[in-house]
Design a protein around this nucleic acid. Structure first.
Length: 267
DNA sequence: CATTATGTTCTTGG
DNA sequence: CCCAAGAACATAAT
């Protein structure tokens, strides 16, 4: 699940269950999700302190505490943050359990463990870890977006998915946005006109507004994303069957009627 | 057994 | 340096 909207949902889970609460116990059930920190150091940095207002940056969730340390959570492809009281029996994929005051609790649950938890000792540590990201997709202005597209020769799809260029978008969202903007995913980013960049920005803003509200990418039939699982997948606007390709290393769906492929460059 | 999966990072080669 | 492609990571479903 986890792209920007999903992480936004996890932020709400942490805000409503964790903000202001004391961290009574941190139980690492599978240290395979810890990145650059031991279970012991994580416990020591967190236990006894309280969670502050959580923040999302791109696909990262930043959980600061009043002790100065912050947990940085990345959910990979299969991670989630779920609220459950400490007494609830563990799920098979619960990797880290946070028992909080007031009988609350949250758990980092993740099947594949492709990413996981980091610890930042301070705000400077948070910056060090996340400062390499581009602007957040949910807040970027049209001019900034146009500028970052203009200076890259790679395909639009790969630039929009590149977290160091723009933070928050993943495979599903980028396909959705490009379909709405009527642009083929293989268009070189630096070939996009001002108007085409504006269409990307408009589509991105709408897609993110709606999916952030839902806390996920909706599978509605009016969304391209809702058609990925079909056999055969069809364009939500009707007519054509969707093409399925490998672009920027990821399975990509696009409509041959709505999204004309670029002329192959020859120079 | 092969293929696929909403992510990131590293390597290799052009 | 830029970029694409492939592999790797770990696990489950089809």
């Amino acid at each position: 699940m986890p792209e920007l909207p999903d992480v936004e949902g996890f932020r709400r889970v942490l805000r409503s269950n964790g903000r202001g609460r004391r961290i009574e116990k941190v139980e690492v059930r599978d240290s395979g999700v810890l990145r650059g920190v031991s279970a012991r150091r994580l416990r020591r940095a967190l236990e006894g302190h309280r969670f502050l207002e959580p923040e999302r940056r791109g696909k990262w969730l930043v959980a600061r505490t009043d002790g100065g340390a912050a947990v940085l959570l990345h959910f990979g492809m299969t991670g989630e943050l779920v609220a459950c009281p400490p007494g609830e029996p563990p799920h098979r994929h619960d990797r880290v359990r946070f028992d909080l005051s007031g009988g609350r609790g949250v758990r980092f649950r993740d099947q594949r463990k492709l990413q996981g938890l980091r610890l930042a000792a301070s705000d400077a540590g948070v910056e060090r870890a996340l400062g390499g990201q581009g602007p957040d997709a949910a807040a970027v202005g049209e001019g900034t977006l146009r500028e970052l597209l203009r200076r890259r020769r790679a395909t639009a799809k790969s630039v929009l998915m590149d977290q160091s260029a723009l933070a928050g978008l993943g495979n599903l969202l980028v396909d959705e946005i490009l379909w709405r903007a009527h642009l083929h995913p293989s268009r070189p980013a630096n070939s996009l006109t001002r108007g085409e960049c504006r269409r990307i920005h408009t589509a991105m803003t709408r897609v993110l507004d709606q999916s952030v509200r839902a806390g996920r990418v909706p599978g509605r039939p009016t969304w391209l994303t809702g058609h990925r699982g079909q056999t055969p997948p069809t364009c939500p606007r009707g007519h054509a069957r969707l093409h399925r390709d490998r672009i920027a290393g990821r399975t990509t769906f696009w409509c041959p009627r709505c999204q004309p492929p670029p002329e192959p460059a020859d120079g």
